[in-house]
Computed example of a mutant assay.
Amino acid sequence: MVIFALLLVAGIAAPFLLYPVFVMKVLCFALFACAFNLLLGFGGLLSFGHAAYFGSASYVSAYAAKTWGLSPELSILAGTATAAVLGLAFGSLAIRRQGIYFAMVTLAFAQMIFFFSLQAPFTGGEDGIQGVPRNDLFGFVPIDDHLATYWMVLVIFFAGILFIYRVVHSPFGQVLKAIRENEPRAISLGYRVNRYKLTVFVLSATLAGLAGATKAFVFQLASLTDVHWTMSGEVVLMTLLGGMGTVFGPIAGAAVIVTMQNYLATFGAWVTIIQGTIFVIAVMLFREGIVGVIQKWVKKPL
């Protein structure tokens, strides 16, 4: 719990030391990476299509706020629920395959969502949904400025991380680890493996949707970038760089990647080359990821 306390202190101080929108972007992508890590790091399932849930929730949340005039919490719930439904539908089919076949099925579903987002009339096509209004939270709490929005994002981030921490350290989480390590043995012990896989898939998709729906209010925008396959690749990079199978690793990975994207933007297309170089170096020198190496040093689970 000491780490959570330090994170909370850092989160409270961050908007006064850094640009609030930048910190909110880090928090949204950190939650997204943690959601993905729940599936890959603890469930052992590699998805190449998590942008489908992140982006679809972003679109629905933005549309609900702009067109229907819903308050932020209801808009975010609508987006998160959409991601959960998609996760249930896609996960029910995807878990019937394993390994690279599972990954390719998730990628195919994500591409379906991308082309739907491109063609559907309510998404705005290549323009996306712009100018998403920050209506009053709960109908009476104004969040029209960046600092007020930041506190909402911080609460959502911590709620998501605490939920993931609880799931990982629950009996359900222990069964997930057993399935990840030795699925045939878990089956022989009587566990209904596919049910556990589907449950963690839906949980991961739902939390990814929560991150995407929140991000729509941070930037007041939902665009094709949110559902593009490169977004799925970025979250994989964040998770591996920070430390797959650790609770706090994806947060560190997301912070590093988002910081590079923002502060190295002047390099243009070279940013991706710099990211790739850093990723290769990290894989060569820190095979367990940033937090994974620290975990190895302190000999305590992080």
Rank of each mutant, 00 (worst) to 15 (best):
L7G: 14
S223M: 09
F4C: 10
A213Y: 06
P133T: 05
F48T: 01
F102P: 05
H169M: 11
E126W: 12
F172N: 03
V21E: 12
F219L: 15
F115E: 12
L17A: 11
A213Q: 04
T272R: 14
F42N: 02
A89E: 05
V258I: 15
V291S: 08
T214F: 02
A269Q: 13
L302S: 04
D145I: 06
G212S: 08
I278A: 14
N135M: 10
T206H: 00
E288R: 15
P250D: 00
L40S: 00
K215V: 13
T266Q: 14
M238S: 03
V155Y: 08
F172S: 04
I129R: 00
F115N: 14
P184A: 05
L147G: 02
E234W: 08
E288H: 15
G43M: 09
V175C: 10
A94Q: 01
I95A: 07
F157V: 00
A108C: 10
I294A: 08
V175E: 04
F172Y: 11
G128F: 08
Y101F: 12
W68H: 13
F48A: 02
G289D: 06
I164T: 06
I3R: 11
H169F: 14
I257V: 15
G212F: 07
V26Q: 00
G276D: 09
G160F: 03
A254W: 07
M1D: 13
K300H: 13
G128M: 08
S188Q: 13
L7E: 04
V200I: 11
I281H: 05
F116V: 15
Y150A: 02
T80R: 07
Y150C: 09
V153E: 04
E234K: 12
L198T: 09
I95P: 08
Q261H: 13
F114C: 09
K66M: 10
F248D: 01
V236A: 05
L198Q: 07
A14T: 04
G160N: 06
A13D: 02
R195P: 10
V298N: 06
A52V: 03
L46H: 00
R180K: 13
Q275V: 14
S58F: 02
G44K: 10
I281D: 08
F48H: 07
A78I: 06
T80F: 04
A33P: 10
R134H: 03
A84R: 06
F122M: 04
F163L: 15
E126I: 13
G124F: 03
G41M: 07
S170T: 12
G128I: 09
V235C: 07
A211F: 03
A148Q: 01
I290L: 13
V256D: 01
S92L: 14
S223P: 09
P15C: 03
A148D: 00
Y263S: 08
T225Q: 14
L17N: 05
M152C: 13
V202H: 00
L46A: 02
A64D: 00
L162A: 15
G190P: 10
D145K: 01
L93R: 07
Y59I: 05
E288W: 02
M1W: 11
K197H: 05
A269I: 10
L46Q: 02
V227L: 03
K66Y: 02
G125C: 10
C34E: 12
C34R: 09
T266F: 15
I143W: 06
F36G: 07
N194M: 14
T239F: 04
